Computed example of a mutant assay.
Amino acid sequence: MTSERTTLYRDKINGKIMGVCAGIADYTGVNAAWVRLGFVAALLTGILGPIIIPGYFLTGFLLNKKPQHLYVDREEQKYWQRVRQSPTRTSREIRSQFRDIDRRLADVETFYVTSNPRLSAEIERLR
């Protein structure tokens, strides 16, 4: 099952014609201008011209429009782009962040326990 956040959509809001290049840019995290420039370069080489134009319109008709509710903010959009690019790296980063949070919580706990002898004695009594 594919999440709606990891699906390729056409982006009509940021798109010029059908939103295909903007959708590819959103999916990959590349600037839309570079995707459009690559499309034009492939079109102008002449070799891929007969394939590029019908492929563009076919893709435009087959892809769904990007839902309005998909991303709350820019930070969430960047996160899901990283997930699509490298899920393993993203999960490794998240695990690292949780380890850091756990370490900081342990530091806070140590601070309160060692600086509060009454609390420390109560914890020892409970053991």
Rank of each mutant, 00 (worst) to 15 (best):
G23E: 06
G29A: 01
I17G: 00
R118M: 05
L105H: 03
K16L: 12
S96H: 05
W34A: 15
N14F: 01
I24T: 02
S91V: 02
A121E: 14
W34F: 15
L63W: 07
I123G: 02
Y71P: 03
N31D: 15
V108F: 10
L126W: 04
R74I: 09
L105I: 08
F57D: 04
R84F: 08
S120L: 06
N116A: 00
L48K: 13
R99G: 00
K12Q: 07
N14K: 12
R10L: 02
L105T: 01
V40P: 01
P50H: 05
T59K: 09
P67V: 05
E4L: 11
R74K: 08
I13W: 08
R118F: 04
E109A: 11
S120G: 13
L126T: 05
E93M: 12
G19C: 01
I51W: 14
W80M: 05
S86K: 02
Y56F: 13
I24L: 13
T7L: 11
P117E: 09
T2E: 13
C21L: 06
E109Y: 00
F39I: 03
P54M: 10
Y112E: 06
A121G: 02
R10A: 03
L44E: 10
V20I: 12
V108I: 14
R99F: 02
A22D: 00
V72F: 07
I53R: 13
F98Y: 03
A25T: 07
S91C: 03
H69F: 06
L48A: 15
E93Y: 05
Y27A: 07
L70R: 05
S91P: 00
I47L: 07
V83F: 08
L62N: 09
V83G: 09
Y71V: 07
R118D: 12
R5M: 12
R82Y: 06
A121C: 03
E4V: 13
D107T: 08
G23F: 02
V20L: 07
M1I: 13
I52R: 08
C21I: 01
N116I: 00
A25H: 05
N14P: 00
N31S: 13
L48Y: 15
G19Y: 00
T110R: 08
R118Y: 07
K65G: 14
V83T: 04
G46H: 08
R92F: 04
P50F: 11
R36N: 13
R104C: 10
T45S: 14
A41Q: 05
I47S: 10
I47C: 02
K12N: 06
N116D: 15
A33S: 13
R127Q: 15
T2L: 15
I47K: 12
I24N: 08
N31P: 00
S86R: 02
R104S: 12
D26A: 14
L48G: 11
H69K: 12
A106S: 11
R36E: 15
G55C: 07
E122L: 09
T90I: 00
Q85F: 09
R99S: 06
W80Y: 14
G60K: 10
P87R: 12
L58F: 09
S96V: 09
W80K: 05
N14Y: 01
F39E: 12
L70E: 06
D102C: 05
K66E: 03
L43A: 05
V30C: 14
T28I: 06
G38P: 02
I13N: 11
E124N: 11
